[in-house]
């Protein structure tokens, strides 16, 4: 069986037994989601790369020292590490970042180009940049739930427990986040092809 066909827990077992190739597959599989999650919190490409590195180093240390015990839940575990590090970053710097380093997210480290026409790619680029900015404009409580549910794949129950609110409050925040994003997208009048985003 090819490594790409193995589950995360199978790859982790191989990694625990010394397969660096298995770890490389895990990194390749999840680096974008972890990086995107961190970036949406810290809004700075270079800080996000530092925190991505710290997250994986922490994961490596835990696994190699035999302390990893969350079989089958590798990505949520890794995302929690990343999220905690990003939050710690703010606590240490005692500020919420206000500088958006869009110049750090150049065309080569932003998106997957596969099989897109030049025109479709331009639309995607515009929309990605816009959407990232619009997410940053959301109220903190809405942004937090959106990142936790959509990018960290936490359930609404887990989000409610983590943030200390009721599940209905978490759901309401998510709904308003989506509605607000939609309104902001509509207001910008940017031409985007909805078919690009359909799954």
């Amino acid at each position: 069986m090819k490594r790409s066909e193995l589950s995360d827990s199978q790859l982790l077992s191989l990694y625990k037994n010394g397969s660096e190739e298995a770890f490389a597959e895990l990194v390749g599989r999840h680096k974008n989601r972890v990086f995107t999650t961190i970036y949406l919190i810290v809004k700075d490409t270079y800080t996000a790369e530092d925190l991505l590195q710290d997250s994986f180093v922490k994961a490596i240390n835990t696994i190699k020292k035999g302390r990893y015990n969350e079989e089958g839940k590798f990505l949520p575990w890794l995302l929690r590490i990343a999220h905690n590090l990003a939050i710690d970053y703010f606590r240490k710097s005692k500020r919420y970042p206000t500088i958006v380093m869009e110049d750090g997210s150049n065309v080569f480290n932003t998106i997957d180009f596969a099989e897109d026409s030049v025109e479709a790619l331009q639309i995607k680029n515009d929309t990605h940049a816009l959407l990232k900015n619009l997410i940053q404009e959301l109220p903190d409580a809405q942004k937090e739930v959106l990142i936790m549910r959509h990018y960290m794949q936490m359930s609404f129950q887990e989000i409610a427990e983590t943030t200390g609110v009721s599940i209905n409050t978490a759901l309401g925040r998510m709904r308003y986040a989506l509605i607000n994003l939609r309104k902001k997208m509509d207001k910008t009048n940017i031409a985007y092809d909805k078919n690009i985003y359909r799954k």
């Binding site: 974008n32 970036y39 996000a48 991505l52 480290n109 998106i111 990605h128 997410i135 690009i196 985003y197």
Partner: peptide
């Protein structure tokens, strides 16, 4: 939510 799926950054 589909648009959110499209937001992905590569380190």
């Amino acid at each position: 939510t589909s648009m959110l799926d499209s937001v992905s950054k590569t380190p």
